[in-house]
Each structure stands twice: as C-alpha cells, then as structure tokens.
Simulated assay, not measured.
Amino acid sequence: VLRTIKNKAAQKQYYTAHQIPTAAYTILQSATEISEHQHLLPAVQKLAEGGYDGRGVQVIDTLGDVSKGFNEQSVLEKKVRIKKEIAQIVAVDQQGKNVLYPPVEMIFNPGLNLLDLQLCPADIKQNVLWKVEAIALAVVRNFNSPGIFAVELFVDENDDVLVNETAPRVHNSGHHTIEAHYSSQFDMLWRIILGYPLGNTKPILSSIMVNIIGSEGHAGPAHYEGLEDVLRIDNAFVHIYGKLQTKPGRKMGHVTVLSNEKQDLIHKANKIKQALQVVSREQ
C-alpha cells in the first residue's frame, strides 16, 4: 500500500488498473516530454515523489509553460473543471470491515494550493454522495489493508466524481473529528491497531475547520495575533501545532467550529480568518 501511495505515478496506475475514475494523465520523466502530450493541456504536473502541501505541483496551461516543468518523474494530469473538492475518510479494521465518515467539502487557497476552509458534512447532492462513497470504498478495498484512508476527490461540472489522491493515514481533512464526531480519526486508528470494534463516525454537530497559516511577509519566531479574540468564540476549538518558527504558507494549526447552522459556521470561520494572524517577532 505505501509503495503505491507514496508515488503519485504509481497511484494513478493503481486507479487505472482497478477502473477507478481519475483525471486523464500520462507519466513523464522530464519536462521536454510535455510537448508530446498537448492533448492533455491545460494540465497540472505533479512530482511523483516528494511533493506535499502544494509543493511539487506546477500548472502547465500551454507549451509556453514547459520551461517551468519538472525534469524528473512526474504525472501530467489534464485539468478538471472542478465544482467541488471532497475528502472521504474510510476506516478499515483487521478483518476488512469498514466504516465511512461523512464526506467533507474542501475550499483551497488558490495562491498557496493549501486547504483554507473545510465544511462537514459536504453540501452535495444525494447521487453525488453515493458516487463519492462507492468510489472511495473501491479505492480502499483494493488495497486489502487495515487502516485509515483519506480519499480526495473532484466533483466536476457534470457531477462526475474523480479520484485525485489518497493518503493512508490520519489526515488534515479529518482533524475536525476530534470535537465534531463521536469517534475521532485518532480514536478510530487506535481501535484498528488494537483490534477493537470500529467507532461511531456520526457527527455530534456540523462543523467547519479553518487552517491557521503563516502570514505573508513573516518568517521567524511565531506569534499568534488575535488568539484571545478567537478563544472567545463559542464552540471554537483552537489547535496550535507547537511549531516555533513561522513562514508564509506554513500550516501552524487549525480551528474547528461546531454549530447546527451552516451560516453560523461560515460567519464564525470568516471571523476567525480575519482575527487570527501568525506573524513573526524578533526574540
């Protein structure tokens, strides 16, 4: 499983081999090969190994962008007209039994290509939900492995669902489960490891999660401006990751908010984004 998942090229080949829908792609060894696959443009080039949190990703819209490409093994993936980005967490025990958490809707910062906001449950149609669950289960079942799997998917403008990538671990898209669900992803992983029954994945309340990101123009010892204001917000749970140094775009923590009302969640998330800034101060 790890051998497949740690390499994006191997991941894509795995989806193809098991007839799991994914965006059209080809595997490259150098940037010069891009010109041989013009039918995939506009595209996104992703390093096969070593990329994370938006790193190792390059947009190739036209042949004029080839000079920006990576000269090592990578995946050239045709751009999808994305309506929504969804993450589906699946837990599998040692006997192969599985449970699914409600899927979450991910909203990304386009400049940093990092998760900005995340809403649970995802606001999707019932038929799209069925596709998301069925495809995520197909991804996981073919691994034949216990564990926690976060399957990231695209929903396109035609409501077709395509797998983007899979993470075989507790994942940023599941951090909201700490407060918002009866059994968090971390509790669930311990249950799997210890051979205990799988936990209850139902939500206690709907939730939204805000990533705390290092502010632009700040690099050095981390200081959290506006933290006290955020701590005054009802049903807001702050998690600081303990990183001493900040830099632009670095994930420094997250805040989860619980509420029965979607508009209340969005209002509080925007309030948190405006109030909380990670800046650097000289020691």
Rank of each mutant, 00 (worst) to 15 (best):
I5F: 13
K6H: 13
K8E: 14
Q13D: 13
Y15L: 15
Q19P: 00
A23L: 06
A24Q: 14
I27E: 13
L28T: 15
S30D: 15
A31V: 11
E33Q: 15
L40R: 07
L40S: 09
L41Y: 11
P42W: 08
Q45F: 05
L47R: 14
A48K: 04
E49N: 08
Y52P: 00
G54M: 03
R55F: 09
G56V: 15
G56P: 10
V57K: 07
Q58H: 06
V59D: 10
I60S: 06
I60L: 03
D61T: 05
T62P: 10
L63R: 06
G64T: 02
G64I: 11
D65T: 09
V66F: 04
S67P: 02
F70D: 11
E72R: 11
Q73S: 13
K78E: 12
R81G: 11
I82W: 03
K83W: 00
E85Y: 07
I86P: 10
A87D: 12
A87M: 03
V90G: 03
A91R: 10
V92Q: 13
Q94S: 14
Q95M: 07
G96R: 06
L100S: 03
N109E: 12
L112V: 00
N113Q: 14
L114V: 13
L117E: 03
L119I: 15
I124M: 12
N127A: 04
K131D: 08
A134L: 08
A136K: 03
V140I: 00
F143G: 05
F143S: 09
P146N: 08
V155Q: 06
N158E: 14
D159W: 14
D160C: 11
D160I: 09
V163L: 00
N164I: 02
N164L: 09
T166C: 15
R169E: 00
V170L: 02
V170A: 14
S173F: 09
H176E: 00
H176K: 05
A180H: 06
S183N: 13
S183L: 04
S184T: 06
Q185C: 01
M188Q: 15
L189S: 08
W190T: 12
W190Q: 12
I193E: 09
G195T: 12
S207E: 00
G214I: 03
G214Q: 02
A222V: 15
A222T: 13
L227Q: 12
E228A: 15
E228W: 08
D229Y: 05
R232W: 01
I233Q: 12
I233C: 05
F237L: 04
H239F: 06
I240V: 12
K243R: 08
Q245S: 07
P248H: 11
P248C: 11
P248S: 09
R250N: 10
K251M: 00
V255L: 04
S259F: 00
E261R: 10
K262M: 08
Q263V: 11
D264T: 15
I266H: 04
K271M: 15
Q274W: 04
Q274I: 05
L276R: 01
V278P: 14
V278A: 14
V279C: 05
S280R: 08
